[in-house]
Design a protein around this nucleic acid. Sequence first.
DNA 1: CGGAAGGTACGACAGCTGTCAAACTTTGAC
DNA 2: GTCAAAGTTTGACAGCTGTCGTACCTTCCG
Lengths: 112, 112
Amino acid sequence: MATTQRGGRERVPPHPDIRTISLQQVLEALVDPVRRLIVSELYSAPDALSCGTIELPVSKSTATHHFHVLREAGLIRQYYMGTSRMNALRRDEFEESFPGLLGALMARADWA
Amino acid sequence: MATTQRGGRERVPPHPDIRTISLQQVLEALVDPVRRLIVSELYSAPDALSCGTIELPVSKSTATHHFHVLREAGLIRQYYMGTSRMNALRRDEFEESFPGLLGALMARADWA
DNA sequence: CGGAAGGTACGACAGCTGTCAAACTTTGAC
DNA sequence: GTCAAAGTTTGACAGCTGTCGTACCTTCCG
């Protein structure tokens, strides 16, 4: 199948329950322009995107860091497909916990 | 009168035009919990409040700093009444530039 | 097997920013 | 005139965090 499992350990750490995420955490995640760029790409993409698909003005290790922060803030869900790590917005869940927030942010053209 | 003027110089610096404010600036302002506490107080107050009216868990000089950031981000309007500096949310203007944002944030109980 | 692709983990470092104390300014009250 | 109240300004400092390079790990492909 080639998705997440592989014997004993997970390759992707567990995702947090969105109900445990504070507004503070979300804002700390979204205050960074690079992370907002990531979110906006995922927001306007029909499906999940691999890390490399999203062009970012930072190094690979920095990109990893940003994806990590977004995952911990409950904004994205990650899973592996082969060597590629896929990223999907947790759109509906997030909307339920923070109604209107994502929309209000994405409505602005100057997220970058 | 006893409001803002006093001969030549203003006692309160000019307020920025909201249309020149970026989303980045707004998020940097609202990511701080103390500033969000201030905004929430003003949000649920019918009229303007003096700095001292809002109880904050920081020193006076730090409070001054936070009010400054909020003013520069176009979130509040300040003017003097006697020795008290009054603060009012720029509600309608802000809503026009960032529709739904303030509401989405204030809807959460855990801004503090 | 061996190599390449795609990311991760780990330090290290620089810059920003939230914090305070102390000195100062302006206004109102007595 | 004097004193208190309310904030501001300045300078200093600590902690966080965004950044990178390097080394490392998995998985796919020939």
